[in-house]
Design a protein around this nucleic acid. Structure first.
Lengths: 204, 204
DNA sequence: TAGATTGTTAATCGATTAACAATC
DNA sequence: TAGATTGTTAATCGATTAACAATC
C-alpha cells in the first residue's frame, strides 16, 4: 500500500473497473486475477500488483468478490460520486456526447454546454441548454464544475482550454486533434482517433 | 536504429507527427527537440531517443527540419498512404465519424458503413452507403479493407469484432465502452471517454 | 570560430514478472 | 485436508534520463 501510486497503474484501474462491471452485469460473482488477466489481455501478476498499491481486496484460494472489488475501485477512482462536466463545442462529437447514455450511467453528467455558434445557443439537449462561450467562466464557477470536455475545431482548442483553466477547471478531456497545453495543476487527456489508427498502421 | 521498436515508442510517433503538422501549418520550418518537448510536455532526450530508433533526422546545432521530419514519420507510420476504413454502427458516434473531415485529411477514409437497423441501411453519407451487417464480410473482403471502427452498443461489440476479424480485418478501433478481445495478429485500440475521465478524477 | 543541438552511450530509474509463503 | 489463489518480495526487464563527443 504505497502513498505514491504510479500514474500508469492509475490508468489501468478504470479498465479493470469497466470489465468488472461488465462481469457483474452478466451475473458473475467471483473472479481470479488469472481470469481477469485473460479477459483483458494482461497478466495476473500485474493485476495483483496494481491492486496491492491500494489494499488487500482478494481472498486466497478463491479470488476476488466482484461486487466488492467494484466498490473499492470506485472509491479509489472517486467514481462513487457523480461528476458534473462542462462541454465546450456542440458539433457532431459534442452532440454525440450529449446523447451518450453511458456517461451519466457511469457517473459523468454533462450539466453545461457552450458553443460559439449563435444558432446553437439556447437549444436544449435533455436537461442541458447551450450557452454562449462568454458565459463559460460564470457558469463553471457558479456550479463549481471541475471537469470539461473540449470538442471544438482545432483552431479554437487552446483558447477554449485556457478559458476553462482560468475558470477553475481541474481536468480537461480534449477531443480536438491538436496538442493543447495546461498548467501542472490541471489534468489533461486526449482522444484522437487518427493517432490510434496510426499506432495500428505502423504494424500494418 | 533498432529492428525491434518498443510499442510505447510507436505510440508516441503519431503525437509527434500531429504536433509537427500543426507547426508546419503555422509556417514553422525548424524545431529543436527541446522546443518540441516543451510543446508536448515531454523531454527532449525522449524525443531524440525515440527518433533514433528509426534513423537520423536532425542536424547538430540546428534541430529538425519540420517538413522533412513529417515525411519521415509518415513513412514510418505508413501514414504516407490512404487507408480505407470500415465503420460498424451508424449511431451518434458513427455519424460524427462519417462527418469528421479530419480522418480523410489525415489519410483515413471511411469507405463502408454497416448497421443492423434496417431504417439506416441504404442511407448515404457523402460517398458512403450504409450496408446491412450481413454484407460485412463480402464488402470488407471485396475491397480489401484492413481497418475497422466499431461504434455499436456494448452488447453487440464482441460479435461485431469477431465478424470483422473473420473478414480479415487487421486493426480495430473500438468505441464501445467494453473490453473486446481479438486474436494476436489483429491490432486493437480502445476509445472510452469514461476511462479517461476516471483517470483524472483519481487525482481530483 | 563559437554556440547550439544532435545521436548515442551509460547510468538511473521504474515497471513487470516470477516465485512462493501465507492462507482461504 | 488438498488445492487454489492471494499479496509481496526479489529478480529481471525495459524505459527514461543525463551526459557528452560529434558536428553543423
Amino acid at each position: 500500500m504505497d502513498t505514491r501510486v504510479p500514474n500508469i497503474v492509475v490508468g489501468r484501474l478504470p479498465i479493470y473497473l469497466r470489465s468488472l462491471e461488465h462481469l457483474a452485469e452478466q451475473g458473475h460473482g467471483i473472479i481470479s486475477s488469472h481470469q481477469l488477466a485473460a479477459l483483458l489481455g494482461t497478466s495476473a501478476a500485474q493485476i495483483r500488483k496494481d491492486l496491492s498499491h491500494f489494499g488487500e481486496f482478494g481472498k486466497q484460494g478463491t479470488g476476488y468478490h466482484i461486487p466488492y472489488l467494484i466498490v473499492q475501485l470506485k472509491r479509489i477512482l472517486k467514481a462513487d460520486q457523480e461528476w458534473e462536466v462542462a462541454l465546450v463545442g456542440v458539433g457532431d462529437i459534442g452532440h454525440a456526447l450529449l446523447r451518450n447514455r453511458d456517461l451519466p450511467r457511469r457517473g459523468f453528467r454533462i450539466v453545461a454546454a457552450f458553443d460559439s455558434d449563435r444558432d446553437k445557443v439556447g437549444t436544449r439537449f435533455g436537461q442541458v441548454t447551450v450557452h454562449e462561450l462568454e458565459q463559460l467562466a460564470q457558469v463553471i464557477q457558479g456550479q463549481g464544475i471541475q471537469l470539461a470536455i473540449v470538442a471544438v475545431p482545432p483552431a479554437a482548442a487552446q483558447t477554449v482550454t485556457d478559458a476553462l483553466v482560468a475558470a477553475g477547471i481541474r481536468g480537461v478531456l480534449n477531443y480536438s486533434p491538436i496538442a493543447v497545453s495546461v498548467p501542472d495543476h490541471v489534468r489533461l487527456q486526449q482522444i484522437d482517433p487518427v493517432t490510434h489508427l496510426q499506432h495500428m498502421t505502423y504494424y500494418g
